[in-house]
Amino acid sequence: MQRRMTLWAWLGIAVAVVWTLLPIYWFLKMSLLTPDEIARFPPPLVPLDPTPAAYFNIFGFDYQVTPELVRRASGQAGQIINGLINSLIVSIVVTAITMLVVVPLAYVFARLDFRFKQALLITILLSVALPPVSTLIPFYALYVQLGLAGTLFGLIVVTLTITIPFVTWMLIGYLRNLPPVERLARVDGYSRLETLVFIVIPLARSGIAVAAVIAFLFAWNEYTYALVLVNGTPANTLATALSGFLFQHPEPSHLAAALVVSILPPVLVAYFLQRHIAEMNLVDPIR
Protein backbone atom coordinates (compact mmCIF):
# COMPACT_ATOMS: atom_id res chain seq x y z
CA MET A 1 0.00 0.00 0.00
CA GLN A 2 2.67 2.44 1.10
CA ARG A 3 4.83 1.63 -1.91
CA ARG A 4 1.98 2.03 -4.33
CA MET A 5 1.21 5.43 -2.89
CA THR A 6 4.73 6.67 -3.53
CA LEU A 7 4.57 5.20 -7.00
CA TRP A 8 1.48 7.26 -7.70
CA ALA A 9 3.13 10.33 -6.23
CA TRP A 10 6.14 9.87 -8.48
CA LEU A 11 3.88 9.36 -11.44
CA GLY A 12 2.06 12.56 -10.55
CA ILE A 13 5.29 14.51 -10.30
CA ALA A 14 6.45 13.07 -13.62
CA VAL A 15 3.21 14.15 -15.29
CA ALA A 16 3.49 17.62 -13.72
CA VAL A 17 7.08 18.03 -14.89
CA VAL A 18 6.26 16.89 -18.42
CA TRP A 19 3.19 19.16 -18.54
CA THR A 20 5.33 22.08 -17.45
CA LEU A 21 8.38 21.47 -19.58
CA LEU A 22 6.84 20.16 -22.81
CA PRO A 23 6.12 23.57 -24.41
CA ILE A 24 9.53 24.85 -23.37
CA TYR A 25 11.24 21.69 -24.59
CA TRP A 26 9.45 21.89 -27.93
CA PHE A 27 10.91 25.32 -28.52
CA LEU A 28 14.34 24.48 -27.20
CA LYS A 29 14.34 21.59 -29.64
CA MET A 30 13.25 23.83 -32.51
CA SER A 31 16.02 26.30 -31.78
CA LEU A 32 18.59 23.52 -32.15
CA LEU A 33 17.28 22.09 -35.42
CA THR A 34 18.86 22.53 -38.80
CA PRO A 35 16.76 24.18 -41.52
CA ASP A 36 16.05 20.89 -43.34
CA GLU A 37 15.07 19.20 -40.10
CA ILE A 38 12.55 21.95 -39.50
CA ALA A 39 11.21 21.65 -43.01
CA ARG A 40 10.79 17.93 -42.54
CA PHE A 41 7.33 16.55 -41.98
CA PRO A 42 6.35 15.11 -39.54
CA PRO A 43 8.25 17.23 -37.01
CA PRO A 44 10.94 15.21 -35.21
CA LEU A 45 10.52 14.52 -31.51
CA VAL A 46 14.18 15.09 -30.74
CA PRO A 47 16.89 17.08 -32.52
CA LEU A 48 18.98 14.46 -34.30
CA ASP A 49 21.88 16.77 -35.01
CA PRO A 50 21.64 19.65 -32.53
CA THR A 51 23.43 22.82 -33.51
CA PRO A 52 23.64 26.16 -31.68
CA ALA A 53 23.76 28.03 -34.99
CA ALA A 54 20.47 29.90 -34.43
CA TYR A 55 21.80 31.47 -31.24
CA PHE A 56 24.73 32.93 -33.11
CA ASN A 57 22.58 34.00 -36.04
CA ILE A 58 20.09 36.03 -34.05
CA PHE A 59 22.87 38.08 -32.54
CA GLY A 60 24.27 38.84 -35.96
CA PHE A 61 27.00 36.22 -36.32
CA ASP A 62 27.44 33.69 -39.11
CA TYR A 63 27.90 30.10 -37.99
CA GLN A 64 30.21 27.68 -39.72
CA VAL A 65 28.43 24.32 -39.64
CA THR A 66 30.79 22.48 -42.01
CA PRO A 67 33.56 23.98 -44.16
CA GLU A 68 31.06 24.28 -47.04
CA LEU A 69 27.95 25.17 -45.05
CA VAL A 70 27.56 28.48 -43.31
CA ARG A 71 24.34 29.52 -41.61
CA ARG A 72 23.99 33.20 -42.19
CA ALA A 73 23.30 35.82 -39.56
CA SER A 74 19.66 36.74 -39.23
CA GLY A 75 18.45 39.90 -40.91
CA GLN A 76 16.54 40.66 -37.73
CA ALA A 77 19.66 40.56 -35.55
CA GLY A 78 19.70 44.33 -35.18
CA GLN A 79 16.10 44.29 -34.01
CA ILE A 80 16.81 41.54 -31.49
CA ILE A 81 19.88 43.19 -30.01
CA ASN A 82 18.14 46.56 -29.91
CA GLY A 83 15.07 44.96 -28.33
CA LEU A 84 17.15 43.14 -25.77
CA ILE A 85 18.86 46.37 -24.71
CA ASN A 86 15.60 48.29 -24.62
CA SER A 87 13.87 45.56 -22.65
CA LEU A 88 16.68 45.60 -20.11
CA ILE A 89 16.53 49.39 -19.78
CA VAL A 90 12.75 49.46 -19.45
CA SER A 91 12.65 46.57 -17.00
CA ILE A 92 15.40 47.90 -14.75
CA VAL A 93 14.05 51.45 -14.68
CA VAL A 94 10.48 50.26 -14.13
CA THR A 95 11.62 47.95 -11.33
CA ALA A 96 13.58 50.71 -9.62
CA ILE A 97 10.77 53.28 -9.82
CA THR A 98 8.14 50.72 -8.86
CA MET A 99 10.00 49.73 -5.71
CA LEU A 100 10.76 53.30 -4.75
CA VAL A 101 7.09 54.12 -4.97
CA VAL A 102 5.44 50.91 -3.88
CA VAL A 103 7.26 50.22 -0.62
CA PRO A 104 6.01 53.36 1.19
CA LEU A 105 2.61 53.02 -0.45
CA ALA A 106 2.15 49.40 0.58
CA TYR A 107 3.55 50.19 4.02
CA VAL A 108 0.97 52.82 4.89
CA PHE A 109 -1.83 50.61 3.58
CA ALA A 110 -0.60 47.58 5.46
CA ARG A 111 0.31 49.09 8.80
CA LEU A 112 -1.62 52.28 9.41
CA ASP A 113 -5.28 53.07 9.84
CA PHE A 114 -6.57 56.25 8.31
CA ARG A 115 -9.68 57.61 6.73
CA PHE A 116 -10.52 56.64 3.11
CA LYS A 117 -8.15 53.68 3.39
CA GLN A 118 -10.73 51.13 2.31
CA ALA A 119 -11.86 53.18 -0.68
CA LEU A 120 -8.28 53.74 -1.80
CA LEU A 121 -7.48 50.06 -1.41
CA ILE A 122 -10.44 49.13 -3.58
CA THR A 123 -9.24 51.63 -6.20
CA ILE A 124 -5.87 49.90 -6.30
CA LEU A 125 -7.41 46.44 -6.59
CA LEU A 126 -9.75 47.73 -9.29
CA SER A 127 -6.94 49.18 -11.36
CA VAL A 128 -5.43 45.69 -11.44
CA ALA A 129 -8.63 44.57 -13.17
CA LEU A 130 -8.42 47.26 -15.85
CA PRO A 131 -7.87 45.62 -19.26
CA PRO A 132 -4.92 47.15 -21.14
CA VAL A 133 -6.91 47.21 -24.38
CA SER A 134 -9.32 49.66 -22.79
CA THR A 135 -6.62 52.15 -21.93
CA LEU A 136 -4.54 51.60 -25.06
CA ILE A 137 -6.36 54.09 -27.26
CA PRO A 138 -6.36 56.97 -24.79
CA PHE A 139 -2.69 56.40 -24.10
CA TYR A 140 -1.96 56.20 -27.78
CA ALA A 141 -3.87 59.43 -28.45
CA LEU A 142 -2.14 61.19 -25.56
CA TYR A 143 1.29 59.93 -26.59
CA VAL A 144 0.88 61.01 -30.18
CA GLN A 145 0.04 64.50 -28.96
CA LEU A 146 2.90 64.63 -26.47
CA GLY A 147 5.37 63.02 -28.88
CA LEU A 148 5.87 60.09 -26.51
CA ALA A 149 4.82 57.35 -28.90
CA GLY A 150 7.82 55.27 -29.86
CA THR A 151 9.89 56.39 -26.86
CA LEU A 152 11.24 54.32 -24.01
CA PHE A 153 10.11 57.00 -21.55
CA GLY A 154 6.52 56.63 -22.68
CA LEU A 155 6.68 52.86 -22.43
CA ILE A 156 8.14 53.09 -18.92
CA VAL A 157 5.30 55.32 -17.72
CA VAL A 158 2.65 52.99 -19.12
CA THR A 159 4.34 49.90 -17.72
CA LEU A 160 4.36 51.52 -14.27
CA THR A 161 0.57 51.58 -14.37
CA ILE A 162 0.68 47.78 -14.50
CA THR A 163 3.42 47.10 -11.97
CA ILE A 164 2.51 49.60 -9.27
CA PRO A 165 -1.00 48.36 -8.41
CA PHE A 166 -0.17 44.67 -8.56
CA VAL A 167 3.08 44.86 -6.61
CA THR A 168 1.44 47.14 -4.02
CA TRP A 169 -1.28 44.55 -3.55
CA MET A 170 1.34 41.81 -3.05
CA LEU A 171 3.41 43.80 -0.59
CA ILE A 172 0.41 44.87 1.50
CA GLY A 173 -0.27 41.23 2.30
CA TYR A 174 3.38 40.66 3.15
CA LEU A 175 3.88 43.72 5.32
CA ARG A 176 0.72 43.05 7.30
CA ASN A 177 2.24 39.91 8.73
CA LEU A 178 5.34 41.57 10.16
CA PRO A 179 5.50 41.83 13.97
CA PRO A 180 4.33 45.17 15.45
CA VAL A 181 7.80 46.72 15.52
CA GLU A 182 6.49 50.27 15.07
CA ARG A 183 5.52 50.54 18.72
CA LEU A 184 8.97 49.45 19.76
CA ALA A 185 10.46 51.96 17.34
CA ARG A 186 8.34 54.80 18.70
CA VAL A 187 9.48 54.10 22.24
CA ASP A 188 13.07 54.11 20.95
CA GLY A 189 12.46 57.47 19.33
CA TYR A 190 12.51 56.55 15.66
CA SER A 191 10.46 58.97 13.56
CA ARG A 192 7.90 57.54 11.14
CA LEU A 193 10.25 57.82 8.21
CA GLU A 194 13.19 56.42 10.17
CA THR A 195 11.03 53.49 11.23
CA LEU A 196 10.27 52.77 7.59
CA VAL A 197 13.85 53.16 6.39
CA PHE A 198 15.83 51.66 9.27
CA ILE A 199 13.41 49.10 10.69
CA VAL A 200 10.70 48.01 8.27
CA ILE A 201 12.68 47.89 5.03
CA PRO A 202 15.58 45.84 6.45
CA LEU A 203 13.07 43.60 8.19
CA ALA A 204 11.05 43.09 5.01
CA ARG A 205 13.98 42.70 2.64
CA SER A 206 13.08 39.23 1.40
CA GLY A 207 9.51 40.31 0.62
CA ILE A 208 10.76 43.46 -1.06
CA ALA A 209 13.18 41.38 -3.13
CA VAL A 210 10.33 39.15 -4.30
CA ALA A 211 8.28 42.22 -5.16
CA ALA A 212 11.18 43.65 -7.16
CA VAL A 213 11.62 40.40 -9.07
CA ILE A 214 7.93 40.35 -9.90
CA ALA A 215 8.01 43.96 -11.04
CA PHE A 216 10.95 43.06 -13.29
CA LEU A 217 9.08 40.06 -14.70
CA PHE A 218 5.98 42.11 -15.44
CA ALA A 219 8.01 44.78 -17.19
CA TRP A 220 10.10 42.23 -19.09
CA ASN A 221 7.03 40.30 -20.23
CA GLU A 222 4.86 43.29 -21.15
CA TYR A 223 3.67 43.11 -24.74
CA THR A 224 0.28 44.73 -25.32
CA TYR A 225 1.39 48.33 -24.77
CA ALA A 226 4.70 47.76 -26.51
CA LEU A 227 2.85 46.41 -29.55
CA VAL A 228 0.92 49.65 -30.01
CA LEU A 229 3.30 52.24 -28.61
CA VAL A 230 6.81 51.18 -29.71
CA ASN A 231 6.49 48.36 -32.24
CA GLY A 232 8.49 49.16 -35.37
CA THR A 233 10.27 52.12 -33.77
CA PRO A 234 13.80 52.29 -32.41
CA ALA A 235 12.29 51.86 -28.96
CA ASN A 236 11.01 48.36 -29.70
CA THR A 237 11.43 45.79 -26.97
CA LEU A 238 12.48 42.17 -27.15
CA ALA A 239 8.81 41.16 -27.11
CA THR A 240 7.95 43.18 -30.19
CA ALA A 241 11.15 42.16 -31.96
CA LEU A 242 10.19 38.56 -31.32
CA SER A 243 6.69 38.88 -32.67
CA GLY A 244 8.21 40.48 -35.75
CA PHE A 245 9.74 37.07 -36.38
CA LEU A 246 6.44 35.36 -35.82
CA PHE A 247 4.48 37.19 -38.44
CA GLN A 248 7.23 37.19 -41.04
CA HIS A 249 8.19 33.53 -40.67
CA PRO A 250 11.81 33.85 -41.71
CA GLU A 251 13.38 30.88 -40.03
CA PRO A 252 11.64 29.05 -37.18
CA SER A 253 14.87 28.17 -35.42
CA HIS A 254 15.69 31.87 -35.15
CA LEU A 255 12.30 32.59 -33.62
CA ALA A 256 12.77 29.69 -31.25
CA ALA A 257 16.26 30.77 -30.24
CA ALA A 258 15.12 34.34 -29.64
CA LEU A 259 12.22 33.10 -27.52
CA VAL A 260 14.53 30.91 -25.48
CA VAL A 261 16.77 33.93 -24.91
CA SER A 262 13.76 35.96 -23.83
CA ILE A 263 12.73 33.41 -21.21
CA LEU A 264 16.23 33.08 -19.77
CA PRO A 265 15.85 35.84 -17.15
CA PRO A 266 12.51 34.40 -15.97
CA VAL A 267 14.09 30.96 -15.71
CA LEU A 268 16.86 32.41 -13.58
CA VAL A 269 14.41 34.04 -11.17
CA ALA A 270 12.07 31.04 -10.95
CA TYR A 271 14.32 29.36 -8.40
CA PHE A 272 14.26 32.44 -6.24
CA LEU A 273 10.52 32.93 -6.63
CA GLN A 274 9.50 29.36 -5.80
CA ARG A 275 11.08 29.77 -2.37
CA HIS A 276 9.54 33.10 -1.52
CA ILE A 277 6.44 33.72 -3.62
CA ALA A 278 4.03 32.37 -1.03
CA GLU A 279 5.26 34.93 1.51
CA MET A 280 3.50 37.50 -0.66
CA ASN A 281 -0.01 37.25 0.57
CA LEU A 282 -2.53 38.02 -2.16
CA VAL A 283 -5.47 36.88 -0.04
CA ASP A 284 -5.08 39.05 3.05
CA PRO A 285 -5.85 42.46 1.51
CA ILE A 286 -9.21 41.15 0.31
CA ARG A 287 -10.38 39.77 3.63
Partner: peptide, 16 residues
Protein backbone atom coordinates in the same frame (compact mmCIF):
# COMPACT_ATOMS: atom_id res chain seq x y z
CA UNK B 1 6.91 58.21 23.64
CA UNK B 2 10.66 58.70 23.56
CA UNK B 3 10.57 62.16 25.14
CA UNK B 4 8.69 60.74 28.13
CA UNK B 5 11.74 58.66 28.92
CA UNK B 6 9.82 55.50 29.56
CA UNK B 7 10.92 51.98 28.73
CA UNK B 8 8.50 49.39 27.54
CA UNK B 9 8.54 45.62 27.27
CA UNK B 10 5.90 44.35 24.87
CA UNK B 11 3.83 41.24 24.67
CA UNK B 12 6.00 38.13 24.18
CA UNK B 13 9.10 40.31 24.60
CA UNK B 14 9.00 41.92 21.16
CA UNK B 15 12.43 42.75 19.71
CA UNK B 16 13.51 43.91 16.26
Amino acid sequence: PHSRNIAMVFQSALLY
